[in-house]
Design a protein around this nucleic acid. Structure first.
Lengths: 207, 207
DNA sequence: GGAATCTGACACTCTTTCGTGTCACTCTGC
DNA sequence: GCAGAGTGACACGAAAGAGTGTCAGATTCC
């Protein structure tokens, strides 16, 4: 009848850092480890223990921040998308679609500098839970593009075509980035951007 | 000292069909089951037992024809590529690249008629053992295209660009097909083909 | 200095799946 | 019709991985 087992209790600082910061740092290390492993060997070939080893932590701390590997996958993807958006969005806002080169330069540049991003965004996004998110991303890109591009043909009968063109452009850019990081295309990053811009301009119908 | 254990022994006919044909039929059913499951739920979500249940066979017969699930994956992909090639190659040989619409119509038509093919060729080809084969396929397509298209710009400084354009076109077509089977693009199959042909013609530099 | 928490290593159970084995039953060839 | 091969259902052990528990030592707070 005495007191029932007490929940965890207090949170103390350790080695000078408060508990919340320690936990956040461990989470960050796990996300970094996830980015590294998912972006190189791929999600399907990554185990919880692998992530822990890469992060230099034990499973206990994995489950402190994540419920499952899928949970970490989501977190890694979220982090990557935030990073990329932070790079691309300002460029869109200043240069806009009338001058697409800076936009492609920023986006493709970010990808080509880190092959892990290419693998994550182009290859691994096809995995189960991420497939829907991928489609949503493309659709979102279409909508933002159409909304922000004054030169786009927005007539109702062209809307499905614009949608198709956006998917085509996304697919083209992804496949080209993938081929490039795999050493299949003997061009410089700048030349890649040039060609993608050229494709964009030739494909896009202007009013 | 006596005779050692004899290997299986003879092969008899059963229910009227000879052993070799029975084995071949079982293999075919397993490949069909693989196509169905890999093309719908995906390779990663498919187990050996699932394939056997789908094929109406037991594991014994799975391992009669395949060493592992990866082995079946390879066989399924081989069968699919043969099918698609059988449809597309004759069209290329008769119509050629000067008139790309029949080519795209044949290829995309074959894909759009069977969503499982789209999933297999666009999504599942990124899986481990298949990734290399995928790259090879694209490269092969580039080479055949360049070799057979008299109008293509084959000057040495444009070769890497042609290579890039082929990857771009492959990525665009794949992504569009995927979006279409997922109901993201409100166009008819013919309109999809029209747009892809238009993209091809606008992208491709002619001499 | 001592009680309590934090940390890391690792042992442990549970589940899933693989690949093989067993067995009863069916069909074939002679 | 009978010895033996073919068939299908299922049992079985091995292996890998998930998620939890334990424990000793380090660190903190009072």
């Amino acid at each position: 009848m005495g007191a029932v087992a007490q929940p965890p209790a207090e949170l103390r600082t350790y080695r000078g850092v408060p508990a919340s910061q320690r936990k956040a740092e461990r989470r960050d290390r796990l996300v970094s480890a996830g980015l590294e492993l998912f972006g190189t060997r791929g999600i399907a070939a990554t185990r919880v223990d692998d992530v822990c080893a890469e992060a230099g932590l034990t499973k206990r701390y994995f489950y402190e921040s994540f419920e499952s590997l899928d949970d970490l996958v989501t977190a890694v993807m979220e982090a990557v998308l935030l990073d990329v958006a932070a790079i691309v969005v300002p460029v869109i806002e200043t240069d806009g679609w009338r001058n697409p080169r800076p936009v492609f330069s920023a986006y493709i540049g970010a990808l080509l500098e880190d092959p892990r991003l290419v693998r994550l965004l182009v290859v691994e996004t096809h995995n189960g839970a991420l497939a829907n998110r991928r489609e949503e991303m493309v659709e979102l890109a279409v909508d933002t593009w159409l909304a922000s591009d004054p030169g786009a043909d927005k007539s109702p009968e062209h809307l499905p075509v614009q949608r198709l063109l956006a998917h085509a452009m996304a697919g083209a850019a992804g496949e080209v980035a993938l081929a490039w990081v795999n050493g299949r295309i003997d061009l410089t990053a700048d030349q890649i951007v040039d060609q993608l811009v050229r494709i964009f301009e030739r494909i896009t119908p202007r009013v």
